[in-house]
Design a protein around this nucleic acid. Structure first.
Lengths: 152, 152
DNA sequence: TAAAATTAAATGTACATACATATATTTGTA
DNA sequence: TACAAATATATGTATGTACATTTAATTTTA
């Protein structure tokens, strides 16, 4: 759906202002597309993100802070997301021997299995739902990087 | 910050997959830039969005459902956001005479004032923080629209 | 027109975000 | 080495999301 229809407005100060709304709307749309698939595995988007980060380092154990530093949304409350993954027995918490302040997180076999299946599903839905060429995706990436360049 | 640094990963299946992560990260970044400014007015991003929608129609009263249909994030729980705006006396709830199921929302003078000041601030921060040309913003908009074209 | 279906908004619940504070441990330094 | 500062994680609280259910009012239809 076009942005104008989606938010029932076509009054934008300029293309840059419109682009900010368009990014926010597209992010919401993307999350929703993925959430539909993840729901079959009883996972939220954020839980999936944490599992994927763990997989990237597996079988190395990584600590809560390192997971946090790799999250897409930096203000995610990682301990709370781990709580839910632990309840579902997809991860385990282990206190680090080297530094007892650190909690290291380990994927269980159940966690590895669910991640493998859900990742296949997410890859499939991205391939089928996102309809742009590699070339356009590349220029999209370039524009987004340029856009954030201030960092304030 | 480049996406690779932000999420400490440079392993992407392809540019399209990278673009989805880039959009999610940029949306989070945009929300955060705006939230910093809105905080001075005691407003959240979503409360600001509701006020702006009301302003667009002011002095016409619009109902909860119509606000919901104009929200950027479609699953926002509008009655709850209105609760907080009402507590702060920025809006008032009025039961519609024509249809008593409907609740119509009215901006108070305090709501109009806070919206005016916060909008100026948000416009300023977008102008100063988003560093792309009008032309690039236009192609960004086009790519995002194309990207969402399936709608599943 | 009375009952059923639909609609609008509010409410309940689980999960997540945003940010402040608490607790335990480690590190730096007087 | 004792104590202060820093660090890692957990927890508290307000807000928001996602979705199901409830309540009240309106519309449809038998």
């Amino acid at each position: 759906m076009k942005l104008e229809e989606a938010i029932k407005s076509n009054k934008f100060r300029n293309n840059i202002h419109k682009a900010t709304l368009n990014i926010l709307y597209t992010a919401w749309w993307l999350k929703r597309v993925m959430a539909v698939e993840l729901k079959e595995y009883g996972l939220t988007h954020e839980q999936f993100n944490v599992l994927r980060i763990l997989k990237g380092k597996h079988p190395e154990q990584i600590c809560v802070g390192e997971i946090a530093s790799r999250m897409i949304e930096k203000s995610s409350n990682v301990p709370r997301i781990i709580d839910r993954l632990e309840t579902k027995k997809l991860v385990k918490r282990v206190t680090s021997d080297a530094d007892k302040r650190e909690t290291r997180i380990v994927l269980t076999q159940a966690g590895i299995n669910i991640l493998q299946h859900s990742t296949e599903r997410i890859n499939k839905v991205i391939d089928s739902s996102i309809n742009i060429s590699e070339k356009k995706a590349d220029s999209l990436n370039q524009i987004l990087e340029e856009m954030r360049r201030t960092e304030r």
